[in-house]
């Protein structure tokens, strides 16, 4: 099974993703943003960083990269696509996921380990039981998830909220547990089909025990297991 890690000008987490995937025994190669051939990839990852300097809005320019038309086609065929941090922002700008990521309400760039609660969802990228708490780093300035009330109701009803920011015991603080002001503590969502998943935290930084946690491993292993099962 082979991961394609899309590299935009200004991406800076692509090496972490490739390292994480290879460490878990998977094959992973870079895909340049100007490429339009995604043949041979089983799953795609849009990594974190500052694509095109975050000019206009985070992800606004990247979504028009030549590779993105192919990423959209790959996703529409049911291909698994994961967007991490800036990758999540690009997926919302490309309308593969609803809503938008706003500036953190505290106006601070946040960078710390963050407890997250796994929600019951249709997401194909995770097979952890609902209410599992994982500890994964966040590292962003625009991670404040927003969507209108109608979209939020739809996300909830369809099981598209995959991860919520929480307290270490898995509870949510009355005033919200999101370190960035995210609506309803939302840290990650998927599309209705479950194959496109975007999240602000960085699971690739929770794979190598050297950096303190291995809670990010299921974010890469579950999809491969599922693909292997489908392939029989």
């Amino acid at each position: 099974m082979r991961f394609g890690v899309v590299l935009f000008p200004g991406s800076n987490c692509e090496q972490d993703v490739v390292h994480a995937a290879r460490m878990l025994g998977f094959s992973a190669e870079y895909v340049w943003h100007g490429d339009t051939d995604l043949a041979g990839f089983d799953a795609l990852v849009l990594p974190g960083g500052f694509s095109y300097g975050d000019y206009i809005r985070c992800g606004a320019v990247a979504r028009f990269s030549p590779v993105m038309a192919e990423v959209v086609r790959f996703a529409e065929r049911g291909g698994p696509v994961l967007g991490i941090c800036n990758g999540f922002q690009i997926l919302t700008e490309a309308h593969l996921l609803p809503g938008a990521l706003l500036r953190n309400t505290g106006l601070k760039f946040i960078c710390h380990p963050q407890p997250l609660r796994v929600e019951r969802s249709v997401c194909e990228w995770l097979d952890l039981p609902a209410d599992t708490v994982v500890d994964i780093p966040v590292n962003h300035n625009e991670g404040n998830y927003y969507c209108d009330a109608e979209t939020l109701a739809r996300l909830d009803a369809n099981g598209q909220v995959v991860l919520r920011y929480c307290e270490p015991d898995g509870s949510r603080a009355p005033g919200g547990s999101a370190p960035n002001g995210a609506l309803d503590d939302i840290a990650g969502i998927c599309n209705g089909r479950g194959n496109v998943f975007g999240l602000m935290p960085h699971p690739e930084r929770g794979v190598d025990p050297l950096v303190g946690t291995t809670d990010g491993r299921p974010f890469f292993t579950a999809i491969i297991k599922r693909l292997a099962e489908v392939a029989g």
Partner: peptide, 8 residues
């Protein structure tokens, strides 16, 4: 398409 995001 580009300069503004109609969602926000």
């Amino acid at each position: 398409r580009l300069l503004a995001n109609p969602v926000i």
